[in-house]
Design a protein around this nucleic acid. Structure first.
Lengths: 342, 342
DNA sequence: AGGCGCTGTGTTACCGCTACCATTTTTACA
DNA sequence: TGTAAAAATGGTAGCGGTAACACAGCGCCT
């Protein structure tokens, strides 16, 4: 779509002629120049819609001499999340004619480094988890009003762009699912306490349990760090209980995979003797055996939303910027790691 | 680099003036138009190098009305490989001003479908494993002389572009590493027989074993499919042997992760009682615990090589196309899943 | 010698958009 | 009601390339 060989593409001149204004005026409307009369603007917008005109980003970039550069922060080791994000971001980026930059950024990224990149190398930045929850990073970006989009942060500020799913609700639904299979004692492995989604997922679990009238046994909640190892250890603790759970809800798939290994070490077969569910639908979820029942985030779609939002943020003047939280819809993926209560 | 705000960029006009020719002639040299006199060509090339001129891809795309579109085939489920490839590809793509398209393509992709995309939607295609080993896909691409780059295929044709690592050599080195730790009975889990790297890796293993004067015990070789599950099953077979191996070499990391789970089920601790190594350094390798010792492919670098090669292939006329095999350098990554013989 | 077809190079006119400045219209106020 | 200032709009000239054609110089043939 960006630059097709398509012979007769609608140009700004076509719109200008149809609306009986100059090309310049059309350009102004497209770029939200405030000094266009409201009446004219509406007319032009109408014609644009009718002709289905989209600006040629290549020509624009040539004329302005710059292509907007949007960076995506990428942790080390790179979370699978980011790759998935990239798929969606890529498409939107080429549609909008922006240059995508993937920036290697450790979790202990210095705020000064970040600040130095701005204006010089980036025009906007997309911050995926876990960086989106790091106070230092959030702080510097907000203070400087850098165009930016935070993804998957669970304590959104009211002066930033945020994209996320409803973690609490998703965890609630997944727990309900387990309950509907007959499980009453459901172990929960928490995520890294530094990432705010952890608390949200836990809240969803608690809500479902309590709503069901099952008492919340503190023994059944174990700390975790979102890593395979922590998942394996936490579930070991769970399975050694006098009254072990019949199902384990791990706050992400990596930990669920660890739980699977621990179950094997305990001689328990999944899902016959123990049910395990994860969260995220990361690649490992369909890789392990049995494949994990989990909650899927539409990560790729969130990637394109992020580029889009960043681009808009970028083209707006300070006064116009409108903060918003976009909530993407999650989905329960039923695979084979969870079954009925033994 | 693509389109910086950088104020004084060298343009084609600068080169033309310096070489005392017209801009058109410079353009011809850059685009390898054969009807430029050799003498002129050399002069212009000299000036280009001296001025460090690089064409502005945005302007070119605007003038020609098209941006080259290079597709990357992406299997389902997406191999982590492809995401990694994408990181490198992305950078190179924006440098060259090509549009990157990620195309969802099942392994049973119809050749007709592929053919239909060409010219219409793609100008070149990059084929990562496992598609790069599918005869039908290779056939249709070669027959039509589509600009293309195959990655990680181990039986390269002599009329295609290929990028790969030396799988045999890498497997040889990894086996040597195990031997240097004192292991004599080393189990091997083969990869999917449909992918030619499987045979190459096996060959490397055999070579190291035989060179060491250790006899090649057929019991120690188990079939596998590159999946977690097949790795778990194969190592179960290995560990039930009367004389079980002290080390297991799985042909990829997913299977090695499966082996880890099986070892846990057998009550064996890794690496104290059993060593396990994988191959690829995929994300799961550093995710599981203990983290896997493995061989790393410079996948991201291969991604940028691929775009580069595809772009060159694209801009050459049939007569000029030069087939080449680029071999990227692998690297042994020592983590904690392999130790000395117990 | 004139006409023909080559090869190699230059000229011109865009590609679609925006920066910059000129011009027209509207508004505000004396 | 006239006029200056402000608001809205238009004209022009590129951004950095390339397509298409024009043209110069040369060897070859009749």
């Amino acid at each position: 779509m960006a630059t097709k060989a398509h012979p007769k593409r609608i140009t700004i001149a076509d719109v200008a002629k149809a609306a009986n204004v100059s090309a310049m005026t059309v350009s102004r409307v497209v770029n939200r120049d405030p000094k266009v009369k409201d009446q004219t603007r509406r007319l032009v917008e109408e014609v644009i819609k009718q002709l289905n005109y989209t600006p040629n980003v290549v020509a624009r970039n040539l004329a302005t001499g710059v292509a907007p550069r949007i960076a995506i922060l990428r942790g080390n080791p790179s979370h699978a999340y980011v790759s998935e994000l990239l798929f969606g971001a890529l498409e939107e980026a080429s549609r909008l004619g922006v240059q995508l930059i993937v920036e290697q950024a450790d979790a202990d990224l210095k705020p000064e480094t970040l600040a130095a990149r701005f204006g010089n190398e980036w025009d906007a930045v997309i911050v995926p988890p876990p960086m989106s929850d790091i106070p230092g990073i959030r702080k510097i970006i907000r203070e400087h009003w850098f165009p930016s989009v935070f993804i998957g942060s669970a304590k959104p500020s009211d002066d930033t762009q945020e994209i996320r799913i409803d973690d609490r609700q998703a965890a609630y639904e997944l727990t309900q699912y387990l309950i509907s299979k007959g499980h009453q004692r459901i172990g929960f492995i928490k995520g890294n306490p530094n990432q705010s989604v952890s608390a949200q997922r836990y809240a969803g679990y608690c809500q479902a349990i309590e709503q069901q009238g099952i008492s919340l046994d503190p023994e059944l909640t174990q700390p975790g760090l979102f890593t395979y190892k922590s998942g394996a250890e936490a579930s070991d603790g769970l399975l050694r209980l006098k009254a072990p759970p019949t199902a384990i809800f791990a706050s992400n798939d990596d930990m669920a995979a660890g739980a699977l290994a621990t179950a094997a070490a305990h001689g328990l077969s999944v899902p016959e003797q123990l049910s395990v569910v994860g969260f995220d639908d990361s690649p490992i979820a369909s890789l392990v055996w049995p494949a994990l029942t989990t909650v899927r985030q539409p990560v790729s779609a969130m990637g394109s939303m992020a580029i889009n939002t960043a681009f808009q943020d970028l083209t707006m003047t300070a006064g116009e910027r409108a903060w918003k939280i976009e909530v993407a819809r999650h989905e329960l993926i039923e695979r084979s790691s969870a079954g009925a209560r033994p």
